[in-house]
Design a binder for these strands. Structure first.
Length: 234
DNA sequence: GCGACAG
DNA sequence: ATCTTGTCGC
């Protein structure tokens, strides 16, 4: 690939949106940079990230809230609105939402030690879900916490808080994530390594961030934040 | 060819 | 994600 293409690999912005093939090629390159071991000493701040489309505006709004950890007291919240440049295609979510995340992250003053993204980490067909993609580009530890499965097979975890089962790559048979029951009586969430963290730690952090709701506080609060932002004109 | 398919 | 009212369950 030439220098322009090489540049596009480390950048989520593009003059012309990449084709599906180009996007998948970029994912295969970035996947090689994912680190599946803890790349931090201590986690003192965790950020939750979420997005939502602004109906009728062809734009997306991204909200990021930074919390102290493990206290989970809010330290800061920022947001950014960007034009839609890519459609939603299963497996290529980062090309749609990534630019808004990068833009909003630039405004964060209290840089987090870990970011929690609403979506998959390595539990993805090419091992690079949005949480991993953004983690690698920002070079910051990350974990993916998705509400639905994208890839992998699993057995339903028992209906008790904290129960979890492994999410397995159907071809290789290795574990790519965890199906975690964060709240009894509700559907489980899909936790996977984003970047610079191992699975057991990712599951532990997700659980420590859970406060009585199915969704961990960082992404849950970020979701409420963007739902509000959508209704405000700017 | 037939399903599956994050947000 | 979004379109959408009432409704089942704690």
């Amino acid at each position: 690939m030439d220098s322009t293409e090489k540049e596009s690999v480390t950048n989520l912005y593009y003059e012309t949106p990449p084709s599906r093939e180009e996007a998948e090629a970029i994912q295969k390159e970035l996947q090689k940079r994912v680190i599946t071991q803890n790349g931090f000493k201590e986690i003192k701040r965790v950020a939750g990230i979420d997005l939502a489309p602004i109906q009728g505006e062809e734009r997306l709004v991204c909200g990021i809230i930074v919390f102290s950890f493990p206290e989970l007291e809010e330290l800061e919240r920022v947001s950014a609105r960007v034009d839609e440049q890519f459609p939603y295609i299963p497996g290529l979510l980062a090309f749609r939402e990534g630019p808004a995340i990068i833009e909003a992250f630039k405004k964060v003053k209290y840089k987090p030690d870990l970011i929690m993204v609403d979506g998959q980490g390595i539990a993805h067909p090419r091992g690079l879900g949005i949480a991993s993609h953004v983690g690698v580009i920002l070079d910051i530890p990350s974990i993916g916490v998705a509400k639905e499965r994208l890839y992998g097979k699993y057995n339903e975890p028992l209906d008790s808080e904290g129960s979890w089962t492994p999410l397995i790559n159907p071809y290789k048979g290795n574990t790519i994530g965890a199906v975690v029951r964060t709240k009894k009586g509700t559907k489980p969430v899909f936790v996977s390594i984003g970047h610079k963290i191992d699975l057991r730690t990712a599951v532990r952090i997700a659980r420590e961030c859970t406060k009585g709701y199915r969704i961990p506080e960082p992404t849950r609060k970020a979701d409420i934040f963007v739902a509000h932002l959508k209704t405000v004109k700017y």
